Simulated scan of single mutants.
Amino acid sequence: MNLLQDLKWRYATKKFDASKGIQEDDLQKLKEAVQLSVSSYGLQLYKVLIIQNKELKSQLRKAAWNQAQLTDASHIFVFCNYTERKNEHIDKYIEATSKIQDTPLEKLAGYGDLIKESLSAKSDAAWQNWSEKQTYLALSNLLTACAALKIDSCPMEGFEQEKFNTILGLDQKGLNAAVIAPVGYRSAEDHTQFRKKVRKPKEFLFEEIQ
């Protein structure tokens, strides 16, 4: 199974080769993989910034404790969750569903109301937690797609959210930088690529209930 071999190949890259960039064709494949990610209710309540600008990457590096991946990687994917609940997001999703699946809007109205009721019942803290979790589902697709294309990646939570939000102007857009992933190609000098993976044995990780 090629997928398992790809997952064994990937690792959290600590040092990227700054001389190598991702080709546009592969970048489009990564974007499509993220677009196809699962999400609660199918809403995809997040936005993904893809940053290649060198000056901006340098600013973000300073807000990520000077970690070199931010400037050496070809691109930085910044997964941003929405900070406010807006019915218009749900309405747009229902309208898109109606158009794409050729279903009358009136038949989907009840589902839209159910989603609105469910999300409005969450406390502000629960909403923020739920909203940030959605971005990790999309991140997972990115990491898997990178592995399949033999593109290296490094998922990172080690950055200062407030500074990222300020640098990227996210507060004004009602967004929050939840998690990031520099992507590119590993440097031959990154010795972590030669380390064996350490994972829990399956007998401790899984419990089958029949």
Rank of each mutant, 00 (worst) to 15 (best):
G42R: 08
Y11H: 13
I167T: 04
F164A: 07
D171R: 02
F164H: 05
Q59T: 00
E84H: 08
Q52P: 08
G169H: 08
K116V: 01
Q172H: 08
K8R: 14
A109I: 06
T71L: 00
I94W: 14
F194H: 13
V179M: 10
A64P: 11
K200N: 11
A121G: 03
E208Y: 13
A138Q: 09
Q28I: 09
K14R: 12
S187N: 05
P182C: 09
Q128S: 14
E203G: 07
D102S: 14
A126F: 09
K150H: 10
F159N: 10
G110T: 02
L170S: 05
G112A: 12
H75M: 06
K173P: 05
M1V: 01
K15V: 00
A109G: 09
A178Q: 04
K173C: 03
D26S: 15
E55R: 13
A18R: 15
S187G: 07
V78D: 09
L119A: 06
Q23D: 15
F206E: 08
E88W: 08
S131K: 02
K86G: 01
F16K: 11
T192G: 06
I51F: 07
K200R: 14
S40N: 06
S131Q: 12
L137N: 10
F77K: 02
L30R: 06
Y136A: 03
T103R: 15
G42T: 02
Y111P: 14
I50V: 12
L142F: 04
K29E: 03
E162L: 11
S58F: 04
K14P: 02
K29N: 04
Q193I: 03
K15Q: 03
E24M: 08
C80Q: 08
S39G: 06
L175W: 04
A125N: 13
A188E: 12
E132P: 01
V78L: 11
T192K: 15
I51T: 04
L205Q: 14
E95N: 15
L56F: 04
K86D: 15
R61Q: 15
N81T: 00
Q67G: 03
E88I: 03
K31I: 02
N2K: 13
W9Q: 07
S153D: 01
K8D: 06
D102T: 06
L119F: 14
G169W: 08
I180V: 13
L205W: 11
L114K: 15
E157K: 13
I100D: 15
A178F: 02
L36T: 02
L49G: 12
N165S: 07
F206D: 04
T71A: 04
D124Q: 13
L36I: 00
L7H: 00
K8W: 01
K54V: 03
V179R: 12
L108A: 11
K196Y: 00
E132L: 00
N87C: 01
E207I: 08
Y111A: 13
Q193A: 14
C80H: 07
E160N: 12
S98E: 10
